[in-house]
Structure formats: C-alpha cells, structure tokens
C-alpha cells in the first residue's frame, strides 16, 4: 500500500507536448509509471512518446479512464488547466507549474471545494511542487527517481530539492519510502501538511512520517496539532528558514515571515509542544529517523 499513487493509477499529462511536459513525461514513463496519455489543445489524435494525445481532458478521460492528471501547463493558463481536470472527473490533480497567481489558486480552491460538496472526491497537490512518487510503482513529478526506494517512511514537504536531500539520506540509511508528497511552496496549496499526514496515518505501509516545512503561513503548526490529536505513528519535522530575514520572500512565494507570523521559532515550538521529533540539522534527517526506529524496535523486542 501507499498513498495517492500506485501501480494501478492511470495518469495523463496536461501540457504533454511542451518542453517541460515532454521531458518529464518521458522520465516518468522510463521509471515505469502508468502514464496513459496526454493533453495538448489542438494536438488531439496524434501520438507523443508512444501515448495518445487529446485536445481536451474529458476526451482523455473518456478514452483512457485516467484518474490522475500531472500538470505542466504554463503559469498564466495553469488555473484553467486545473479547472478543466476537475470538470473532466479527474480525482487527483498534481500541479508542477511554478508561478501561478495566488488569486487564481484561490478561485481554483473554491471550485474544488464546491465539487467536493457535490459528492466528488477531488484532491489537488501543488502547485509549485516536485510532484508525488510511490517508489517502485509510480512517479508523477520531476524528482530524480533513482534516489528513492520502496519502504515504510512517508514524506510530505513544501520544497523540492530539500526533499531529495531527505530522501537521499533515508535511502542511504537503509530506509525506503512509502510515498513522497511535495505539497509545494506557494501560499495557497491544494493539499496541506495536515491532510497528507491524515493519509499516511491510514496507510498500513507507512510506519513513520517525515514532514519538511519552511517559514511562512501556519501549515506546520496545524499539522503539528493534527499529529498530536490524531496520529499514532511517529512524526519527524524539519523547518527551513531559521536564518531568513523577515519580510523577504525566500524564493518560494509562500516562504515569507509577515507581521511576525510564520516564523521559524514559532513553528519549531509548535512542533515540539505537540510531540513531533524536531531535526535541527538538515544533515541529520536520515540518521535521526534511523536511530529512532532502531531504538523503538529494540523496545518492542524487549
């Protein structure tokens, strides 16, 4: 088991024939992911990467039975692409695109909420994220596949390369991953840390979760409270941005300390208060998790 993606997923790629879409769709296919087709308006009826191309998402869903869409549509048009996926019946939308206007995301969120109120179950992950990977089964994103290996650790993160760093350390320490979810660095995200924690808690394959956050917003604090109130599995937390100056955006649109909220110190305190194991040194994520699980195993054995 895993969360969100498995070998039984059926994934289409929106922005399939563009340069980013093509490059990464090929990487996903080479990894063995079930990519069943793609969408580029006006290219319907052609073939790309040995997969059918459709002009609309609903054509693609009808022909392939796709349940997941991986979106590479350029930022000015990305919100429309997401809305098209919602409308076509896609239930998992993974948006890689960086630089989508925040108000576009506010409107997209409203549309997803109203679809879900009408009985649909639509989940969005991203935007501005590396995507989702269930190692050995399905990679829907831009992460380097080879650093991952299947295993028991769930990861949820706001950052791309920081996640690769954590995955690499875990794999080096002999710990594989159940699913790795990049929720993205934007102020409004499709899925929050807490929502992904809830999925990991229910997943039998996952035995522990690593949560990687950064300054800005209150998602880490909310997730910490969720972990305290609803989780039985151990959660490890790292928060980037201890040395970031207030009022400046640190690359990610969402990584900013505004009016004294979203600070590193506040997040670390919330995590600790809620019983999350905080890793201060980025280089020690893998070793901390490994040491904890080893100790736990001994205690269980004893």
């Amino acid at each position: 088991m895993s969360i969100l993606l498995s070998k039984d997923s059926k994934v289409i790629v929106q922005g399939f024939t563009g340069s980013a879409g093509s490059f990464h769709a090929k990487q996903c296919i080479d990894y063995g992911s079930p990519i069943v087709g793609g969408v580029t308006p006006g290219r319907g009826g052609t073939t790309h990467l040995e997969r059918p191309v459709f002009s609309t998402v609903s054509d693609a869903v009808r022909a392939t039975g796709a349940d997941t869409s991986l979106i590479f549509v350029p930022a000015p048009f990305a919100a429309d692409g997401i809305l098209e996926a919602v409308d076509a019946g896609i239930s998992l939308i993974i948006t890689i695109t960086e630089g989508i206007p925040v108000l576009d995301m506010a409107r997209v969120k409203k549309a997803i909420e109203s679809a879900n109120r009408c009985g649909r179950q639509v989940r969005m992950v991203g935007p501005n994220c590396p995507g989702v990977i269930t190692p050995g089964e399905c990679k829907a994103g831009i992460m380097p596949g080879y650093i991952h290996k299947p295993g028991p650790i769930g990861i949820v993160s706001r950052s791309g390369t920081l996640t690769y760093e954590a995955v690499h350390q875990l794999t080096q320490a002999g710990l594989g991953q159940s699913t790795v979810v990049g929720i993205g660095g934007d102020p409004i995200a499709g899925s929050s840390h807490a929502e992904i924690l809830a999925l990991f808690e229910k997943d039998p394959q996952t035995t522990a979760v690593v949560m990687i956050g950064e300054i800005g917003g209150a998602g880490e604090e909310e997730a910490a409270r969720y972990a305290r109130d609803h989780m039985t599995k151990p959660v490890f937390g790292f928060v980037a941005g201890r040395t970031a100056p207030p009022g400046r955006r640190m690359g990610h649109a969402g990584a900013i300390v505004e009016g004294g909220s979203g600070t590193h110190a506040g997040k670390i305190k919330a995590l600790k208060d809620c019983g999350v194991t905080v890793v201060d040194n980025l280089s020690e994520i893998g070793s901390t998790v490994a040491a904890f699980l080893k100790k736990n195993a001994k205690e269980v054995a004893a």
């Binding site: 390369t161 920081l162 660095g185 950064e214 040395t243 640190m250 690359g251 990610h252 280089s283």
Partner: peptide, 12 residues
C-alpha cells in the same frame, strides 16, 4: 538549487 534547500543550507 531549490528555494527550500537554499534556506536549509543557510541554516546549516
């Protein structure tokens, strides 16, 4: 490379 890793590197 990457905003999160850039912040993480500063912190380290």
């Amino acid at each position: 490379n990457g905003a999160g890793l850039a912040m993480g590197t500063m912190d380290t």
